[in-house]
Amino acid sequence: MISQIVLDHSKLSPGHITSILVVLGAFMDLFHWYDTLIKVVGAGASLPICSFGHSLIHATLKSAQANGFLGLFTGMFDLTSGGIVATILFSFLFSLLFHARD
């Protein structure tokens, strides 16, 4: 599946790799390559972090087409807010409930 990109992990830290992949995902959607990828492989392409960059730029462009240049600012999180809100909420709740292990 598309997670083959994951294969080239060797020297960089996970933080570097995730940042690079997000930028890569945003770049790939500049010409809507990522959309075709999602259509072909489905959830395999929307689960990795590159789809985060993809949906960021997707929402941005959509609202830019609707609202003009201001849409670049206002529509950034239209599609990704679900994921972000869920992450914040669950990490808050679980860290309230549990203690750190060692």
Binding site: F27, L30, I49, T60
Partner: peptide
């Protein structure tokens, strides 16, 4: 503790994601 450190690692993703999406989106627009 929790509030200000939550995005310590995840922040890179948001930071670079948003900046790159904005710049590329502006170019495309």
């Amino acid at each position: 503790g929790m509030g200000s450190n939550a995005f310590k690692l995840a922040g890179t993703v948001l930071f670079y994601g948003v900046s790159s999406a904005f710049l590329l989106g502006a170019v495309r627009y």
